[in-house]
């Protein structure tokens, strides 16, 4: 089973093709504003390199956020239109899940953190088990200090942080949680489409995917609304 993974939640634009549990190819590029310009050319280069066409894919997997609203919509729209054209299902995967699955097998709690606007972060708590990664909390949007204090009040064992939002706020997390907390390695800080695609294969084969039209972004935060005067 071959799945194209698309990841545009952060400033990293990432695309990958997974065949069963193996990543056949992955391109990732950091470009703060360049998602629109770069995403489809990267997909084209990847598929050309692998000598497969869009029609040869069995499905699509897309990271649906939370993250940058605008860049998420570029990835989701592209995924939905590609899947619609070739009539293949889409697996929608929360970006925090993608980051957590990157630490599969690590003991203790896993907390991926993604930067949100207005000095907040997106985060959720996970634990690794024999069955894979299990989510323990809802998807949260809160201040970095708020997250650290909330974790500190309940934390018994160890916790490992991942994601660029964790790296950016590591001093305050460490100050609050001390040696119970650790930070994943630098390559784990940004969500990558290889992980999205591999998870996509797993979910598609176990549960199936969605109609492209039914796939939505996971914003977590409501839209900012300024009433017209």
């Amino acid at each position: 089973m071959r799945v194209l993974g698309i990841e545009t939640s952060t400033s990293v634009i990432s695309v990958a093709v997974a065949e069963d549990s193996k990543v056949l190819g992955e391109f990732s590029l950091t470009a703060k504003q360049g998602h629109m310009k770069n995403l489809l050319p990267l997909i084209d280069q990847l598929l050309s390199g692998l000598e497969i066409g869009v029609g040869d894919l069995d499905g699509f997997a897309v990271s649906v956020g939370p993250g940058s609203f605008t860049s998420l919509r570029v990835g989701l729209t592209t995924c939905k239109a590609l899947a619609h054209t070739v009539k293949k299902p889409v697996v929608d995967i929360p970006t925090l899940d993608v980051l957590a699955w990157g630490l599969q097998g690590v003991p203790g709690l896993i907390c991926p953190v993604i930067t949100a606007r207005r000095d907040e972060v997106y985060a959720a708590l996970y634990v690794s088990s024999e069955q894979g990664i299990k989510r323990l909390s809802s998807y949260l949007a809160l201040s970095p200090i708020g997250l650290a204090e909330r974790l500190g009040s309940e934390l018994r064992g160890k916790i490992i942080f991942t994601g660029e939002g964790a790296e950016a706020n590591w001093p305050s997390f460490y100050e609050c949680l001390g040696d119970k907390a650790s930070l994943a390695g630098p390559v784990r800080m940004w969500p990558r489409a290889g992980q999205t695609a591999v998870l996509g294969v797993k979910i598609l084969s176990e549960e199936g995917g969605k109609e492209p039209g039914a796939v939505q972004a996971l914003y977590v935060k409501p839209p900012a609304i300024r009433r017209q005067s």
Binding site: T78, T85, V86
Partner: peptide
């Protein structure tokens, strides 16, 4: 993004 993806596919 949609138009590009449709035309590409």
């Amino acid at each position: 993004a949609a138009a590009k993806a449709y035309s590409y596919a």
